[in-house]
């Protein structure tokens, strides 16, 4: 049964995944070419100065991609279910509704992870080609809040789409936007390395909260 749900979700999200994988690859190739261009044209010392002293993030183009990917995946997964109240088809399947909903979310999260793996591996390959190990490592630490924003974006967008009342949708949107802002406040590298886990706990709360609109949707209560 879970294999069948995976099959259904895959039909809905495969092109979104392919699209964002293509965007990530294109951006990573651009980052590599741009790094090469800067080092060739400005020299290693100026590049070093920009990255270490002025804290210019050579991979900042990646910043909002995980968030947009998360939102797009949530929309691709749940808008077709909500259109014409199609979730009733899924809720009539002979499977526990909560488990089914959590499994759908898990599929979405794992798909987000595929995008993140691409970003992380891409950053390691591009970074290692031009920069020392410390800078590559710091790039991975610096992008973690962006990736976390992607997960939060996915969970929040899923919740907002599944939510059956506009009042709750608006409240959830405001809370989510405020939270995303907190994850994009950096002015340089490694800035979230101490506070990251607090933000992570909030994301876990997002993932549990999603059961409530799902339950209300199932039972038809507002």
């Amino acid at each position: 049964m879970y294999k069948a749900i995976l099959y259904k979700e895959w039909i809905k999200i495969k092109w979104v995944l392919v699209g964002f994988a293509a965007i990530c690859l294109a951006v990573l190739v651009y980052i590599g070419l741009d790094s090469r261009h800067n080092i060739e044209m400005s020299g290693a010392i100026k590049t070093w100065l920009l990255i270490i002293q002025r804290k210019v993030l050579y991979y900042s183009l990646l910043k909002y991609i995980p968030l947009f990917a998360g939102i797009a995946l949530a929309v691709a997964q749940f808008v077709p279910e909500m259109t014409k109240n199609r979730f009733r088809l899924s809720f009539h399947l002979p499977i526990d509704e909560k488990r089914m909903l959590l499994f759908m979310i898990l599929i979405g999260l794992l798909t987000n992870m595929l995008v993140y793996i691409l970003i992380i591996v891409g950053l390691m390959i591009t970074g290692s080609a031009f920069y020392p190990q410390e800078i590559v490592l710091s790039s991975l630490i610096t992008v973690t809040p962006w990736l976390l924003a992607g997960i939060a974006g996915y969970l929040a967008a899923s919740m907002i789409v599944i939510e059956s009342t506009w009042k709750n949708r608006i409240i959830l949107s405001i809370i989510s936007i405020a939270y995303f802002n907190l994850l994009f406040l950096e002015n340089g590298y490694n800035e979230y390395r101490f506070s990251f886990w607090y933000y992570f706990i909030v994301v876990i709360l997002f993932s549990i909260t999603i059961l409530f609109p799902g339950y209300r949707l199932r039972k038809g209560s507002k």
Binding site: Y7, K12, P94
Partner: peptide, 30 residues
Amino acid sequence: RARIGLLHEGHLAYDFMTVEQVEKFYSKFF
């Protein structure tokens, strides 16, 4: 629920699937 066949108002179906896909999907549940 497995013992109840439900036709929703408006012949609701998974519109994003094909004839073959939707059969393949449902067959795993029953």
